[in-house]
């Protein structure tokens, strides 16, 4: 349905996106995962025809849309990272405005506005001004504004940033429903692993402007099939223990979060014995040791040496 070919964007001397290749098939949800500054937003701005690429192409049903963006725009809904709404208008007035700019009018517009209000759960608050909404409600309306013209492709740029877990779940369920009931194709960018894991059929992982891994969730997790992810909880994190871990060539990556230390090591190594030996040497007391199934976070850590939210 949509394909980005060798997509590159330079801003003066900075290479924001470097030869990105990705594709979306009709009816699938594709995740674009990466930390802040990875180039996700620039990539989707180019895909959605908002900014022209420095080089490369975007093809929609095998036709380039760089010079003829209208072909894609007519079937595209975009949910920006910002709350792109008029805060001094009510939810209903906002939706009516965004419907009108897609040439909806009269009974059709009223019907669509009511449908979208129901879908995003704001029917009861439709006449309230957006500036009086909670963060979650604004995010839901932000999504609603992109759905009025029933787009075939929905591009969502971190649509759940800064909201409560309840609203986040509502949004994720709504996206899933749109995909299942209306066969809407979704390109979903996020730096929340759990969202991407929950929603997406396929995932692209981006870092420093490049795609560093892609595939289904299982395919990506299989990158770590030869490694253990071991999570060690300690009474107190000591520098000497961390130093000892870092000096071991068989320990690939180490992350520390409060009193939890996560390490990656090859499966053929008996990492338990090594960990206990090092603990004994450095007088470190373990409260628990656990081997975990690798997550996308672990994959990202493995690929980049950094945590996603660093």
């Amino acid at each position: 349905m949509l394909e980005a070919v060798e997509l590159t964007k330079h801003f003066k001397q900075t290479k924001a996106v470097d030869r990105v290749n990705l594709y979306l098939e009709q009816g699938e949800i594709v995740g674009l995962l990466g930390p802040n500054g990875a180039g996700k937003s620039t990539t989707i701005s180019m895909i959605s025809t908002l900014i022209p690429p420095t080089s490369g192409d975007v093809r929609f049903h095998n036709e380039s849309i760089i010079k003829e963006p209208a072909k894609l725009r007519n079937v595209l809904g975009i949910v920006p990272q910002e709350i792109a709404l008029y805060s001094d208008l009510s939810a209903k007035e906002n939706l009516r405005f965004f419907g009108r700019i897609h040439r909806l009018s009269g009974a059709e517009l009223n019907k669509k506005v009511d449908e979208v209000l129901a879908l995003i759960g704001l029917t009861d608050r439709q006449n309230d001004l957006v500036k009086h909404f909670s963060g979650g409600m604004k995010r839901r309306l932000n999504i609603g504004a992109a759905l009025l013209h029933e787009p075939k492709l929905l591009i969502m740029d971190e649509p759940t940033v800064g909201i409560d877990p309840q609203s986040r779940n509502y949004i994720l369920e709504t996206v899933k429903r749109l995909n299942q009931e209306k066969q809407m194709t979704v390109l979903y960018t996020s730096h929340y692993m759990e969202e991407v894991e929950f929603l997406c059929d396929r995932i692209y992982i981006m870092d420093k402007g490049c795609i560093i891994a892609s595939g289904t969730k299982d395919e990506i997790k299989n990158i770590l099939s030869s490694e253990h992810t071991v999570e060690v909880k300690v009474e107190k994190v000591s520098e000497s223990f961390l130093h000892a871990l870092r000096s071991q060539p068989v320990i690939h990556h180490i992350t520390v979060q409060e009193r939890t230390i996560t390490v990656l090591s090859p499966k053929e190594i008996n990492v338990f014995r090594l960990l206990f030996q090092l603990a004994e040497k450095t007088n470190t007391v373990f409260t628990s040791v656990e081997i975990k199934t690798p997550t996308l976070e672990d994959v990202f850590l493995h690929l980049t040496g950094r945590a996603l939210r660093d």
């Binding site: 910002e82 709350i83 897609h102 504004a145």
Partner: peptide, 13 residues
């Protein structure tokens, strides 16, 4: 800045 402009650009306007 707030993205409303982009919504308009991507509309039929």
């Amino acid at each position: 800045k707030e993205g409303v402009w982009n919504r308009m650009i991507l509309s039929r306007l």
